[in-house]
Design a protein around this nucleic acid. Structure first.
Lengths: 204, 204
DNA sequence: CATTATACTGTATATATATTCAGTATTAAT
DNA sequence: ATTAATACTGAATATATATACAGTATAATG
């Protein structure tokens, strides 16, 4: 993510606060009023800069068409997004990945979590994780050996047991004898941990 | 919370999905397009009804000024008892069997259900049902072959696949090769079906 | 039976809003 | 030294949008 100037950061914060307060994004004029600008073009240019740098997206010709990209995931109450476990690509909250939202009380699973991941394949079947199950994923890097993690290698996302063999070697173990262990040398391969599983839901 | 009609519910869902997808609320026209209405006034009247009933708030004179009001968390109809799968005895709702209650939105699993059953043992592990999982049980006698049923033989309660071989012979099949099939001759043994599994929750 | 709520179509319009254009000024980079 | 990015004011405008008004029709209610 690119650099952001202090003024642009003010605008970004302003947008976030406005959405939190009202439930919908601000207009150019709203931003001007919040930050004391006198011309809507002040807001416009900041918005275009933020868009160019990838912090927001602006829907052209659409009123209040601002949306924040990759925000801290805020579950506005109790709706959690369900994200399809696509073969390639990060399971981000990019809109095209959100299957639907699922209403779930806070603290449903002991730990808090950020989204649901729809499971594809049977590589974790011996851990009781079946096709189409919903894994409650908590975005965290705090992983212990034996945790079930959502890992990304390049653009491939998988759910596996996490085992650190040595500072540089990590094993991603399936729970299905038909699948083989993945050994990762962190020296040569980039491993990104999206988070870990803190719960599971199955709809029959 | 007041009653909501099915059409109003569609509109409310439409708003939620739209916000989740785009980051901002829909216009009247957007709702019309999503739901197939031909007049913006169709959306308008539904919105006013939803506002009157307290599901949304509408900022007057403001484009996309719709925000969803978080309903009071209803503990009335949404607390389901968790019942321990005891080795002996029927999993009745007698208070002494209720571990605790679990708050869960209505319609959480497609079908309605009556209580949660805490799983003991691994006899259904190949069906992805592990120790300590919570099975959502619907009390019903409407069982098809292949359903996962909660069955009681004398005072023994088990969770198994249901297979009717003949009018008098029922097989209760585990999903674990370490356990053996149970064949029941209804002529000589009494089999009571407590209900069937319609969902599953796992807390890690 | 009259009334109210629901559930729409269709038209019209004031205004809310995005967006472009024309400037000015400062700072960082090439 | 010149370009590019930042950081604004101010005015103008096409259009996106809320919203009122005029109808039609059905079901529920008292």
């Amino acid at each position: 993510m690119k650099d952001i100037t202090s003024q642009q950061n003010k605008v970004l914060n302003c947008i976030q606060v406005y959405i939190k307060k009202t439930g919908f994004p601000p207009t150019r004029a709203d931003i001007c009023q919040e930050l004391g600008f006198k011309s809507p073009n002040s807001a416009e240019t900041h918005l275009r800069a933020l868009e160019k740098k990838g912090f927001i997206s602006i829907e052209s010709g659409t009123s209040r068409g601002i949306s924040i990209i990759n925000p801290e995931i805020e579950h506005d109450g109790n709706d959690y997004p369900i994200i399809g476990l696509v073969a390639a690509g990060s399971p981000t909250l990019a809109t095209e990945n959100v299957e639907k939202v699922f209403n779930c009380p806070q603290g449903f699973f002991g730990s808090n979590f950020d989204y649901f991941l729809r499971v594809r394949g049977l590589s974790m079947k011996d851990a009781g994780i079946m096709e189409d199950d919903l894994i409650a994923v908590k975005k965290t890097q705090d992983i212990k050996n034996g945790d079930i993690v959502i890992a990304r290698i390049d653009d491939e996302v998988t759910v596996k047991y996490f085992h650190r063999h040595s500072p540089k070697i990590v094993h991603l173990q399936p729970a299905n004898e038909d699948f083989s262990n993945i050994e990762i040398d962190l020296e040569h391969t980039e491993l990104f941990i999206e988070g870990k599983s803190v719960g599971l839901i199955r709809e029959n």
